[in-house]
């Protein structure tokens, strides 16, 4: 029988890991893909993208995904919705305002981030209520 002992659960571990991943992203360390959004490059880690988005899961899950270094996302009015989503993936914080919510909603729909889509819908509904 194993000796009796304790499990020590570090309650902030997940947020500490995510915070370090965000710092790695901001410093360009081990980032392995460039997202081109309306011509603007956004560097990221495929592992984080695939963990957060059904769209990226579809793109990167197979062997073909290993060779993808640059990925173009739709430009146009929705483009400014992608950067807040990337920040959300790395921080768990989603910045929304009445001006940006429709673009974030469109981008989240494209990236198949259902829970964010629902949050955007709730925010937009609330902001239209008197």
């Amino acid at each position: 029988k194993g000796a009796l002992g304790y499990v020590r659960e570090f309650t902030r571990h997940s947020s500490d890991v995510l915070g370090n991943l965000n710092e790695l992203r901001l410093r360009g360390i081990l980032t392995d893909v460039t997202l081109l959004v309306g011509g603007q490059p956004l560097r990221a880690h495929k592992a984080v993208l695939i963990a957060c988005s059904g769209f990226f899961y579809s793109i990167f899950r197979g062997r073909a995904g290993v060779g993808v270094d640059v990925l173009s996302l739709p430009g146009g009015p929705e483009a400014r919705g992608f950067a807040p989503l990337l920040d959300f993936m790395y921080t768990s914080r989603l910045r929304l305002s009445p001006a940006t919510a429709p673009a974030v909603l469109a981008a989240a729909t494209y990236l198949q981030m259902e829970h964010v889509v629902q949050a955007c819908h709730r925010f937009i509904q609330t902001s239209y209520e008197p």
Partner: peptide
């Protein structure tokens, strides 16, 4: 878990902090 009698919560930082870029 075999041999485990309790779970103790650790509220402090769990890993090193990557220095922020200046």
């Amino acid at each position: 878990h075999e041999g485990v009698v309790a779970t103790v919560k650790e509220a402090g930082r769990s890993i090193h902090e990557i220095p922020r870029e200046e």
